[in-house]
């Protein structure tokens, strides 16, 4: 019997190839196989033949929304910087989207980074993507030479030995705490549609850290970022990061130093996370892209929790609502405001 991923892959190829065939889209964005076990490559299919290279499996960890602004631009007819946009509708692109990716597309629409009318979204329900680092850990760091995916298990071959792992046990933290696994906007549905997951401990990871003392939290945070090499994979894998000049590249004034020293790494991670406040959909691409295994997602998850609890917002769920940080309510909570005890030092 075919497993879910195979069904989705077949449907996806058929759909993408029909769109490309008919000319409705000039590119279709998905994933292709990588050269190593547990890797995939974001891939742009431009012909129906290309579309046969598309795959769907548990290792599609990057967020495809990240590529959309540049992809849409690249398929526009070439024109000079001062030329007016061509008449008539611009070419479209197709993309496959899970819950979080589709929410990022919504955010991009709200921020005028992509034009929804130029996208054909193939919605899909994510069953949770696998964390490569968890699999490695489950195999004591042995080199994994082959991996076969079943619906609920992974058959891993490492250094000659074969081990069966429960798939869900090695899915990413963000997937395990996800509550919107199915695309929220789409034009076509691919594969079985799952109900929204009721993650019992959506913010448990965050609550555990919040329980610590300030010193313990600082120790945790320092340890977490100590191996940061400042490669900016987290930033560049993020669909929210599209600024022409990033704050880390500003030189006058320079907000953050460029070295891997503690202060610089700490400021970088805190500011990067803060820029995602009210926009992050917890897609986990930052963490998956990190070559050093830093869990910087915990910072954005904390913001996601606060945005949800303080302002009742979830990013990317409703394109008609303004983004959290671009609006306000008169009755917004202000318990954090410093209130002096009156008249302590009066002369």
């Amino acid at each position: 019997m075919n497993n879910v991923n195979d069904i989705i892959t077949q449907e996806l190829r058929a759909f993408a190839s029909s769109l490309l065939e008919s000319g409705e889209v000039s590119a279709f964005l998905g994933f292709a196989h990588g050269s190593l076990p547990m890797t995939t490559r974001p891939f742009v299919a431009k012909t129906p033949e290309d579309a046969q290279k598309l795959v769907w499996n548990s290792f599609c960890v990057l967020n495809l929304a990240n590529y959309l602004p540049a992809l849409l631009k690249s398929i526009e007819p070439p024109r000079g910087p001062k030329d007016p946009p061509p008449e008539g509708p611009l070419p479209k692109a197709g993309v496959i989207a899970t819950g979080c990716w589709s929410r990022n597309i919504v955010v991009q629409t709200q921020e005028n980074q992509v034009d929804r009318s130029r996208l054909v979204i193939a919605g899909v329900s994510s069953r949770g993507m696998v964390d490569r680092k968890k699999v490695l850990k489950a195999l004591d760091g042995k080199e994994i030479t082959k991996i076969e995916e079943k619906d609920h298990d992974l058959i891993v071959e490492a250094d000659g030995a074969i081990k069966e792992l429960n798939r869900w046990s090695v899915t990413r933290d963000n997937c395990q705490s996800c509550v919107h696994s199915s695309a929220v906007v789409f034009d076509h549905w691919i594969g079985p549609k799952l109900d929204d997951r009721q993650a019992p401990n959506r913010f448990k990871q965050i609550e555990d850290i919040e329980k610590m003392t300030a010193d313990e939290r600082w120790a945790w945070f320092s340890k977490e970022i100590e191996t940061c090499i400042r490669c900016y994979a987290c930033r560049n894998a993020c669909p929210l990061c599209y600024c022409e000049t990033c704050f880390v590249d500003d030189s006058n004034p320079q907000w953050v130093g460029k070295s891997i020293e503690k202060a610089d790494a700490a400021i970088f991670h805190l500011l990067r996370a803060f820029h995602c406040a009210g926009r992050c959909t917890d897609c986990g691409a930052c963490e998956s892209a990190c070559p050093m295994g830093i869990r910087m997602r915990l910072l954005t998850k904390k913001l996601e929790k606060d945005v949800f609890e303080l302002f009742g917002d979830e990013a990317g769920m409703d394109a008609s609502k303004p983004l959290t940080m671009t609006t306000y309510k008169l009755e917004d909570p202000q318990g954090f405001i410093f209130e002096p005890k009156h008249g302590q030092k009066k002369e």
Binding site: I206, I209, E210, A214, R217, W218, F221, A266, L270, A273, F274, A277, G278, L299, K302, L303, D306, V307, L310, D332, P333, Q334, F336
Partner: peptide, 10 residues
């Protein structure tokens, strides 16, 4: 509100 919480979180 968010920033102060984030700082304390770290």
């Amino acid at each position: 509100a968010l920033f102060k919480n984030l700082l304390e979180f770290a």
